[in-house]
Amino acid sequence: MGLSYQDFVKKYQLDDFKTGLELRGHEKINFYNDLNEIFKVICKIFDKLTTISSLRGGQVLMSLAKLQTRESVVNKTDVKNGLNVDRLEKLMHAFDYLEQQNYIKIKRKTKKFHIIQLNDQDNPDFKLFQEIVQKFWRSPQEDKESIRNWSDKK
């Protein structure tokens, strides 16, 4: 099982604002080590994302990580819409590459309907990746909606 941001917050009760955070002796060392471990995984995620050679591979992975937490079934068109890309063909190479790399799993239900999933069994670091993306990343579709609302407001 991969490292989790939420487990880290829960372990040290960082979201409990009623009580103060007191760390003594080994607790402090464990906290420091856990924090370093999280940063190490984040660095590994950076490294993996930057070495994805397919043009939109990194974006596809992020969009999938965001969608997968919200919806039970994610298909290629959902990813395309999330990234606000006009044609699915632009992402085909990325899907193939990520499947080859074992980063994602594609279940081909029909000729056109393909369900995709992050392969977090083989890549345990995806758990933290998914948590970060879900919490902090805004997809181009969300950005587009935000600016459309602002633009239409008089």
Partner: peptide, 13 residues
């Protein structure tokens, strides 16, 4: 292009 364009429009927003 799209991402960078969104970035500058979000800055304006």
């Amino acid at each position: 292009f799209q991402k960078q364009f969104l970035n500058i429009v979000l800055a304006l927003q």
